[in-house]
Amino acid sequence: MTLAIVAATLLAIPALVFAVECLLGLRPLPPLQMPPCIDAPAFAVIVPAHDEADGIAATVAHIRAQLRSLDYLLVVADNCTDDTADQARLAGARVIERNDLDNVGKGYALAFGCDELAKCPRNVVIIIDADCRIAVGGLQRLALEAAVRRVAIQAAYLMESPPDTNALVAISSFAFRVRNVVRQRGLARLGAAALLQGTGMAFPWSMVSAAPLATDDIVEDLNLGIALLQQGHRIGWSEAVIVSSQPANREATMTQRTRWEHGSTSSAPGNILKLAREALRQRRVDLAILALDLLVPPLALLLVVTIVSCALAGILALLGTGMWPVTILGMVLAALILTVLLAWVAEGQRLLTFNTLLKVPAYVLWKLPIYARLLAARQKTWVRTARK
Rank of each mutant, 00 (worst) to 15 (best):
R387E: 14
E239G: 00
A343G: 10
A44T: 08
P48T: 02
L117C: 02
S244C: 07
I56N: 06
V124R: 11
A65T: 02
G198Q: 02
I96Q: 06
L32E: 15
P28R: 09
A7F: 12
W382V: 02
W344A: 01
N99G: 12
L342C: 15
T258R: 13
L336K: 01
V136P: 14
L10S: 02
L187Y: 08
A248N: 12
L357E: 08
V60L: 01
R257S: 09
L287E: 06
L142N: 15
Q184P: 13
A53M: 04
S238M: 06
A40G: 14
R141V: 15
L292A: 13
H62P: 00
R284I: 11
P31G: 13
R284E: 13
R133M: 10
I96Y: 08
K119V: 10
A248F: 07
I56Y: 13
A214Q: 05
L32S: 11
R179A: 07
R257H: 06
D71F: 03
A147I: 07
H62R: 06
I38Y: 14
L144A: 08
G92Q: 04
T81H: 02
P361M: 10
S209A: 11
W260C: 07
D115Q: 14
L10H: 03
A343Y: 07
P297W: 03
G92I: 01
V17A: 01
A268M: 02
S161H: 08
A155F: 08
I5F: 05
D71R: 04
H233C: 11
L67H: 03
G107E: 00
R150A: 11
D221N: 09
A12M: 04
L139P: 08
D129N: 12
A44V: 06
Q246F: 14
L32C: 10
E278M: 09
P369K: 00
T2F: 06
G232Q: 10
G191R: 02
F112S: 06
W260N: 07
L29P: 07
A19P: 03
V75E: 01
M331R: 11
Y108I: 08
A91Y: 03
G105R: 10
L275F: 08
